[in-house]
């Protein structure tokens, strides 16, 4: 029984962190789907979401509801602004230029926050009471419970948004064929903005949930979860939305099981190892389709 309980405990921890990776991975995969860019600045949206929340709660002492919504809106606007200023002028340039620009934007954001807040980690305020709920022999923290609930809810909403609404269908049309989408009367620029807005808002929520789970924030905190979420997106098949969700959960569970059964130090190695194995067997990712040659 103990063996099973330990396994379930690790599994739950994995689902907890996996759901955060999945939220962040969605931002990478949506942006890639629509403009074929790996937005390396997306990891820093996580960090910005955390700092904005910190400022709202600690500096301005805003009521909790406002203090959680404001950072999401600020990150959403930052996402739109980054695309307009840094990526839009490069839309017809070689992809490598845009990729390098994305790395540049990432450094810029990290160093602006470094200058403003310093490099020492600061404690993130306690938002959710961490006291655990007991389920038989299992201890599930309220944080885990709420994180998974919010993440899954947002993923369902995103899925409905993309499948059922007009702007969602426009996003799918632009990601498949921007030229043909224009001929349908779809404004490609505003559809791309909407994609960045959605991805960044999800990234901000991911950032807040991540900071609740690991309550120390610093200007470079977005790098590691950003990288893992990116790997999750590639693992599931970059550009494919259910792939990002699947990839996120796989990454989280693999990480947690490695930490629980093998060694904490090896967790990252195992996670990236899985990526190498999957990509060498199926280069387009778990849910990826084989690339068709366009004639």
């Amino acid at each position: 029984m103990d063996v099973l309980a330990k396994f379930l405990q690790q599994l739950i921890n994995g689902i907890h962190v996996g759901s955060i990776y999945a939220l962040i991975a969605l931002g990478y995969t949506m942006v890639y789907g629509i403009i074929k860019l790996i937005n390396f600045a997306h990891g820093d949206i996580i960090m910005m979401g955390a700092y904005f929340t910190f400022v709202c709660i600690v500096t301005f002492n805003l009521p909790i509801g406002v203090a959680l919504i404001t950072p999401v809106i600020l990150c959403l606007l930052s996402g739109i602004l980054i695309e307009r200023v840094a990526y839009k002028p490069l839309r017809n340039s070689p992809r490598l230029s845009a990729l390098i620009t994305a790395i540049g934007v990432s450094f810029l954001l990290e160093n602006v926050f470094f200058k403003k807040f310093g490099q020492n980690p600061i404690p993130f305020p306690q938002i959710i009471n961490p006291s655990p709920i007991s389920l038989g022999p299992l201890q599930i923290s309220r944080i885990t419970f709420i994180t998974v609930l919010i993440s899954v809810l947002l993923m369902i909403l995103l899925d409905l948004f993309i499948k059922k609404t007009k702007p969602g269908k426009a996003m799918r049309a632009v990601s498949e064929d921007p030229g043909a989408a224009q001929l349908m009367g779809i404004n490609v620029n505003s559809t791309i903005s909407l994609t960045f807005a959605t991805g960044s808002a999800l990234g901000a929520v991911g950032g807040i949930l991540y900071s609740i789970a690991y309550p120390l924030i610093d200007p470079f905190m977005g790098v590691m979860p950003g990288l893992k979420a990116f790997v999750a997106a590639v693992l599931g098949g970059i550009g494919i939305i259910p792939g990002a969700m699947l990839g996120g959960f796989i990454m989280g569970i693999a990480e947690s099981l490695t930490k629980g059964y093998i060694s904490s130090q090896l967790a990252d190695a195992v996670v990236f190892g899985i990526l190498i194995v999957v990509l060498s067997l199926k280069p387009s990712g778990l849910l990826g389709k084989n690339v068709k040659e366009k004639v």
């Binding site: 269908k169 799918r172 049309a173 498949e176 064929d177 030229g179 043909a180 001929l183």
Partner: peptide, 13 residues
């Protein structure tokens, strides 16, 4: 309205 060369229907929809 424009019916483009090669049809360009949205193949995944």
């Amino acid at each position: 309205a424009h019916v483009p060369e090669g049809r360009r229907v949205f193949a995944e929809m």
